[in-house]
Design a protein around this nucleic acid. Sequence first.
DNA 1: ATGTCAATATGATTATTATCATATTAAAAA
DNA 2: TTTTTAATATGATAATAATCATATTGACAT
Lengths: 237, 237
Amino acid sequence: MKRKSNAKSNACTECNVNNLTIFNKLTIDEINYINFEKTCYQYKKNTILYNEGNRISGCYCVHDGIIKLYKTGIEGREHIIRFAKAGDLIGYRSLFSGELACHSAKVLEDATVCFIPGEVMFNLVEQNSKFALEILRLACHELDVANSFIRDMAQKTVKERLAEILLILKDDFGIDENNYIKINLTREDLANIIGTATESVIRLLGEFKDQNIIDIEGRKIKLLDINSLQKISEKSA
Amino acid sequence: MKRKSNAKSNACTECNVNNLTIFNKLTIDEINYINFEKTCYQYKKNTILYNEGNRISGCYCVHDGIIKLYKTGIEGREHIIRFAKAGDLIGYRSLFSGELACHSAKVLEDATVCFIPGEVMFNLVEQNSKFALEILRLACHELDVANSFIRDMAQKTVKERLAEILLILKDDFGIDENNYIKINLTREDLANIIGTATESVIRLLGEFKDQNIIDIEGRKIKLLDINSLQKISEKSA
DNA sequence: ATGTCAATATGATTATTATCATATTAAAAA
DNA sequence: TTTTTAATATGATAATAATCATATTGACAT
């Protein structure tokens, strides 16, 4: 399941996802410091990186692949918080809040992730205030996103939330040359993001398909009419 | 509506809410710096401190009173994010994310708030890394809270969420000698926190009262059976 | 290739919650 | 005080979504 990958091939200084990350405010020396202290791993699908309640000793920077972050709710039901892809940092919340992990992390698509010890993160925050501000910026931004989502959960119907999440997934993962969203989720995963029953997602996706708003090929979803999705998600359709 | 209060009476060095705040990691000199740069205001109920979309030039530390933070949703419907009370800091998210205010702030109970210019906050983060870590800790903690609430919105029924929010309000604001929660909200406000119709809140509060779980006197809610509320909110009742 | 299990699909039914209508009461303003 | 407005309350109905039952399909392991 877990394989320590060739360090040379993942030198931080050469890392092509570097400029996507919060590490772009670091000096060369600081990047080298991370490079020296980090450990890269390759994980297969379904591997658990950590579980809710675990103590977090550092954070992970995703080099490639997709990680699913989720909380376990009442009666063991999974609730998906977000997905992390190339350039995203995970585990930093619990690291800096000093609390136990508030979610679990599981590999959705085979991934390479770099583990950076907590001590290294704390040292960098202390010695480079621009980096501190950058993490703060990230956390505050995610807070905005979370609060907007709470409002949408509170005010939108299931159909509106499904339309919304398709657009969010499009923005986060992009679409390929045939307009397919570049992430494949089960109907159950989609249900666990927007908080509904799997059957409801199935029925609504079918409805969107009948209306030529999307096309479906297994788990691949093709966006045919983004405008309509937008309208539905804004209650103006 | 707005009155600049006597600076002497609100010297930060003497401020009794100081140790409740994130400022407890500052040196005496730094506290004096804030004291010199801050401006205290007294606001009457219903005063708007800032509106969603405004550019934020600093943050506010609440000395006393209660501020309601809310987002405006589809069709102008208000969604309450949180309440800030003595010792709480508001506006810091947008300040550090560099985005426009993602919510509006309105006085719920007459309040005294101290405005701290953004520049001062940024300077302090840059010169005192312990302070930077403290704000980061706060933001990451709030992120955890927000994600838990999203899960609860997704997985709980209206009744369960109402029971939950009563317990949260009890924890946040405490109860007086007669077990009344020390915050008075309209039924509409309660509905706008948990995302339901005002009528549903009215009916469910009535139901809780009939079951002797709470007692109601106007807007004051008395907790009679916290255990039952806990069970309801956890789906085990 | 075959069996096994998970995922998808669809219908029928029930439960939950929103909406609308309309009183009643409380609070604020004239 | 009287008037006006906002908040609370309650019933009736409609809309929304969950649950349960049962096929069907697809993926994966042997």
